[in-house]
Structures are given as C-alpha cells and as structure tokens.
Design a protein around this nucleic acid. Structure first.
Length: 273
DNA sequence: CCGGACTCCTGGGTGC
DNA sequence: TGCACCCAGGAGTCCG
C-alpha cells in the first residue's frame, strides 16, 4: 500500500502528536514482523521524541537515546489512537505518549518492520545504500542517465530500485512512465538523457501531487486520523486495464514486468529510447 | 556486479 | 454461503 506519498502523509499526520512527547510505554503484541522487533526498542521508553523524519519509505522516530526505524511494508499503517479506542486485529505495537495519545502500528501482512538503532540511522544497513530523495537533493535526469548506463533491466524496474531513487513503488512508477511517454519495458540503458530529464520531472510531479492529495487509497490506506487519500481519481493508468486512455482513448494495457502488474497506454507510450 | 526469482503473511475479490 | 484459488502497494536475499 504505502509508497512515498502515503508514508509522507503518515509522517505529517503523526508528527504534531509525537514531537516533544515522552514515550511512557511501548506495548508489543506481535513481535514477528518482517524481522523480530528488537527488545532494545524499550530504550525509547522514557525518552522524548525529538523529530519524526522520513527517508525513502522509512519513518524515523528520533530521540536522545536512539532512533526507532519503522517501515510499513505493503499493508502497514500508523494511527493516532487514545486509550478508549477498541483494539483491532493486527494492532501489533503501541507507543504510549505522555499526552495520553497512542501511536498504533497496524499491519495485517506483517511485511513491515519496527527496528531500533542507537547510531546514526542513515548509516543503518537498510538505509545506508539508498538513492536520493526524488523530491529534493540532487535528483534529476542526469542522475538517472548516469545510473542507467550499464543497466539492462526494464526502466520500470530501474526506477523502482531504491538504490537508484527511493520511494517509487508500483503505482507511481506506472504513472510517471505514462506521463513521460515511455514504454515501461524499455531497457533502462537505452533511454536518452533528454527523456530521463522528462522522467525525473514526472516522478517528482506525480509524487508531489499525490502527497498534496493525501496519498492514494486503493483498498484501505488511511492517514493517521483515519481519512483516505484522494489521488486515486487522478491516476492515468494504474488499475485502469481496458479503460480508455485519458488522452487518446486507446484502451489501457496490463502486463507483468518483474513479477509486478504494470499498466500503460500502448499508443501514448511508444517511446523505447 | 547484475538481473530475476523467491520469499515473508493475511485478506479481499472472484468464480464455481 | 462456502470454498478454493488468485492477486496485492515492498524489498531483502539467494542463485546463476
């Protein structure tokens, strides 16, 4: 579910409730997520959360004693709850705050993660080799061009590689390629610098617009206050198999690239180079 | 090093 | 209504 816009929407939703709050207790009901939740996470108890940051799709709860690293996987979510709220199935972790608010981690598929580090989180194994943030940094077409010269994989898989650029998941990869008029199966090393400039712009544009819309709600994504995102109605190709292209009315095609569903307009996305 | 397959897990949708 | 089956937004790991 959560790609970068949904994670950023989550970050913005929890930040005002979390920052400068003392973590008074941490309740772990299900330790077996993607990796077991480390016992050392309890070191956050008694500490004040100084900042809620995002790196790619990872959320960082920073404190003086260390940093909790959270990942929502495919089905994870964070909710702002209070003690009276009924516990749902798959509510795996509660962070109880001094204000009485509870930050509640929910994840049916358990592909998510809750980790802990006392070191610089950006040097953590999972974060150390991540590529640039698409919405800032030095992310541009030149970067994509340079990174792709010796890569033969499909451009869709290339832009979904977190070492190339973070945060581009299956939905927004299809959308950005549509807006850049590039066929998703095109070999990444054969695409021109000019077209990568366009692609970098459409990646930034689609992610930025999705954040402004509060993310995409396909099935069950809700922000920490329980509200859905409104970007679904803005999608051009994702999930629109057989429906008319919004530009040329050609039916949208579906295919599987790298084990993941991909969507494109066979007419608008004819560029392979 | 690279690319592709596989894997973790549960739930929703579909078709019989 | 029940049930078997298929599919899913991520991404680390393994193998060739």
């Amino acid at each position: 579910m959560p790609e970068l816009p949904e994670v950023e929407t989550t970050r913005r939703g929890i930040e005002p409730h979390i920052v400068n709050q003392t973590v008074v207790d941490i309740v772990v009901r299900q330790r077996q997520l993607r990796w077991p939740i480390p016992r050392a996470l309890q070191a956050l108890k008694g500490a004040v959360v100084k900042a809620v940051q995002r790196r790619g799709k990872y959320l960082l709860l920073r404190s003086d004693t260390g940093t909790a690293i959270l990942h929502l996987g495919m089905s994870g979510s964070l909710r702002i709850a209070t003690a009276g709220d009924e516990l749902r199935k798959h509510d795996h972790v509660d962070f109880l705050l001094g204000s009485g608010v509870i930050l509640r981690f929910h994840d049916p598929r358990r592909f998510g993660a809750v980790l802990w580090t006392t070191r610089d989180p950006h040097r953590h194994k999972l974060l150390a080799s991540l590529g640039p943030e698409p919405l800032c940094d030095h992310f541009d077409g030149g970067h994509l061009f340079a990174q792709s010269r010796h890569r033969t994989l499909a451009v869709k898989n290339f832009i979904m590689d977190g070492k190339v650029v973070v945060g581009v998941g299956n939905i927004y990869a299809s959308e950005a390629l549509y807006l850049a008029a590039i066929r998703p199966t095109a070999s990444s090393c054969k695409i021109s610098r000019a077209r990568y400039n366009t692609l970098a712009n459409t990646i930034r544009g689609v992610l930025g617009d999705a954040i402004e819309a509060g993310g995409t709600t396909l099935r069950d994504f809700v922000n920490p206050q329980g509200n859905p995102g409104y970007f679904l109605q803005s999608l051009y190709v994702y999930g629109r198999t057989g429906e008319p292209c919004r530009r040329c009315e050609t039916p949208i095609k579906h295919s599987v690239i790298g084990q993941r569903g991909s969507f494109f307009c066979p007419r608008c996305q004819s560029a392979r180079y």
